[in-house]
Structure formats: structure tokens, C-alpha cells
Design a binder for these strands. Structure first.
Lengths: 200, 200
DNA sequence: TATATTTGCTAACGGTGTTAGGAAAAAACA
DNA sequence: TGTTTTTTCCTAACACCGTTAGCAAATATA
């Protein structure tokens, strides 16, 4: 009896069509222009069908946000794997994070609520701890190498992340009032500062 | 002929009633719940009257955002004035910025587009350069004291701001999953790191 | 074939920002 | 003072939005 399976498969196809269409629309017109009706139009179903697959609009955003966190984690992992020296790893991960943010502006905006109605995406997102562990691993390693390993790794992780996120969100919000070059310099400078402050 | 003056005065009163009411509503219910109709209701005028004073909703938000930037500038100025040592000034300004953000959460969200439909507030906001100058003044002083004053002040300013903004926006977005104590520690740690990196 | 179930639609509800057009009040002019 | 012009301000609508009730058609089950 493959009928049930086909039905499940078809249902799954509609569900991923919703997600894919929503994502295409967002890339074309931005988050503020995304509406349930536009998605329904694009997948050639009526509006209530959307609600057979998602409880509400926020559930769609959450699912897309999850993809974002998974993609970010993957990029971070790949960056880290290129090096064995933890300081190099941190630099590479900062770069990867930066690149992810600007190559996937819409993902980043959704994931961290930049310029869009907040949807509590980042909370209730288990995937974010994956990337947290990646960074903290390298930080821990550096600290262990120290002669006076008193530094708080958790605190340093927060600093690391805050610098990068702060830089990105400032640049992302006000567009092109500073050059790309300067921003990349600031990133490198800040990351270098943190690492330097870590090794002692 | 004081009639014209009275009219202008009355018109100005309605305008500031709109702003004041909007601000009260936002503090009570948050940005997402603010609507033109609610404002109109509260000031006991009909909806189109709002549009006699503001081109659109965004113009209202912009005006409130301006107040936010002015208040922030004032707080930063006061903090800076308490010290003569530029390093102390930087620390005090970082603290002032931090306190402003959490004592005026709604202002901060609006000013930097956190968790709300973006409204291009920060661009086209001349007031923000005031606070920029305050910070860069202190940074310049520190750099001038150095024996090798090669460091780029503009770059350091961006780093300084990014760290603080990043920390604040991360904390503001995900509420209480880290303690206040830790966050304040991270702030102090990060600012100390920047200053240390500056003095050489 | 008859019944039960799933599927997907139309149409609505209550909300949003925004605006056209007209009534009433105020001011200016005679 | 009476008339005309201007200003003020409201009702009602438009075109959207997220969401859901309720029903018809298609499908699966017996």
C-alpha cells in the first residue's frame, strides 16, 4: 500500500515548496514584502493550504531560520577544519561568519532579528549551540596553552561573538556609509585584539 | 494678530501629542503593537489628522528616533565630562551607552532596527555623528599620547562601537539566557581590551 | 456502490497604512 | 453684519495583511 506513502511524499513536497517559495520571494523582495498570500499565489494553492503545513507565518520563518543556522554551522565547521592552530581557527571562523552574513543577508537578518519584526527565532534554536561549541573549543585551547589559565572562556566567547555580530549588524543596517575595506579591517583588528588579549 | 500664532501653537501641540502618545503606547505595548489608529484614538482625533502632521508612519518613528539619538548624545556627553583621562572617558561612555540601551530599550530598538520593521532610521540621522565625535575625541587623545601614533582612530572607533552594540543587541534579542552580571563583565572586558590595544 | 475522510476552496473577520471627498467650523472680506 | 473663502477634521473607502470557519469536491475505505 504505497498510497499513504505517496500522500506523505506529496504533502512533504508542498511543505518544501512553501519554504522554497518563501525563500525566493524574500531574496527578491525582502522580508517586509513576504506575505502568506504571495506564497499561496506562487505555489498555486489557496491561502488556507499554507496553514495545513504551518501553524502560522512565524513557523515558516522559524523553519527558514533553522536552515540558516545549519548553513552557518557548516561554514564555521569547514573554516575551523582548515587549521589546527586555535588562533588561526578563530580568525578563520570570524571570516566565515562575516562571509555568511553578507552572502546570505536575508538569513542573517532573520536569524538575529535585524530590521524585521522580531519572531523569537534565536531563542528556541538548539542549532545555535553548535556554532557556540565550535568557537569555544578554540578559545579553550588557547587558554589552556597559557601559563596563567585563569581567563573565563565563556566570557571570551561572548566578547568574540559580540564584536563580530556588532560589526555585521551595524554595517548591515546602514548600508554603504562605510567602505567594505574599512569594515574588513575593523573585523581583523578586533579579532586580532581578542586573540592577543587571550594569549598571555 | 495673535490668531495665527495661536493656531501654529495649537498645531504644534497636536504634533507633540502624537509623538508623546506614540511613545507612551510603545513603552506600554511595544513597537509591533503601535498603529496609527491607536494613536488617533488616544489623542481623540480621527486618523487623517495624523497625516496632517506627518507624511507617514515612518516619519513619526523617525522623529522619535531623533529624540533617542539626542538623549543618547546627552548621556554620553555627561559621562565623558566626568573625566579628563581619555581612557576613563571611554570606559564611562561605554557604560553610559550600555545603560541608555537598557533603560530605554524601545529607543534603542528603534534607533538600530532591532526586532522591528526597518525604517532607515539610522541613515539620514545627523545626530549620530555627534556621539561619534565624542568617542573619537577620546580615542584620538590616547593615540596622540603613544610613541608610535600610527593607529587608525576611525578604525578603532568602529571597533569600540561594534563591541558595545554587538553585546547589547545580542542580549536584547534573546532576553535572559545569560545573566546581567556576565554581560556587564563582557562589556568591561571588551572595553578594557580595546583600550589596552590602543595604548602602545 | 455507499459511506467516511481527506483536500482545498471561497469568503469572511478583524486588523493594518493611507487617502479621497465632503461637511462643518473659522477666518477674511464686503 | 452677511457672504465668501479658507482651514479643519471626519466618514468612508481602498488595498493590503494574518488567520479561520464552513462548505464542496475529490479521494479512499467498507
Amino acid at each position: 500500500m504505497g498510497i499513504a506513502e505517496r500522500k506523505i511524499r506529496q504533502k512533504e513536497e508542498v511543505k518544501s515548496a512553501i519554504l522554497e517559495t518563501a525563500w525566493q520571494l524574500v531574496k527578491k523582495e525582502g522580508w517586509q514584502q513576504l506575505s502568506i498570500r504571495k506564497i499561496a499565489d506562487a505555489i498555486e494553492y489557496s491561502v488556507p493550504v499554507i496553514y495545513d503545513h504551518f501553524e502560522n507565518k512565524e513557523a515558516i520563518l522559524f523553519e527558514i531560520g533553522k536552515h540558516g543556522f545549519q548553513l552557518l554551522s557548516k561554514k564555521m565547521q569547514q573554516a575551523k577544519d582548515k587549521f589546527t592552530d586555535p588562533a588561526e581557527q578563530l580568525k578563520a571562523m570570524a571570516d566565515a561568519y562575516w562571509n555568511f552574513a553578507f552572502k546570505n543577508k536575508e538569513y542573517y537578518q532573520l536569524m538575529f532579528g535585524l530590521g524585521m519584526p522580531c519572531c523569537e527565532i534565536e531563542k528556541n534554536m538548539p542549532e545555535k549551540s553548535y556554532f557556540r561549541n565550535l568557537v569555544m573549543g578554540s578559545i579553550d585551547e588557547i587558554i589552556k596553552k597559557n601559563k596563567v589559565p585563569v581567563t573565563n572562556a565563556c566570557l571570551k566567547y561572548h566578547t568574540f561573538w559580540s564584536v563580530i555580530h556588532g560589526l555585521i549588524s551595524i554595517k548591515m543596517m546602514r548600508g554603504a556609509d562605510t567602505t567594505d575595506d574599512l569594515n574588513k579591517l575593523v573585523l581583523d583588528d578586533a579579532v586580532a585584539g581578542i586573540i592577543k588579549n587571550l594569549e598571555r
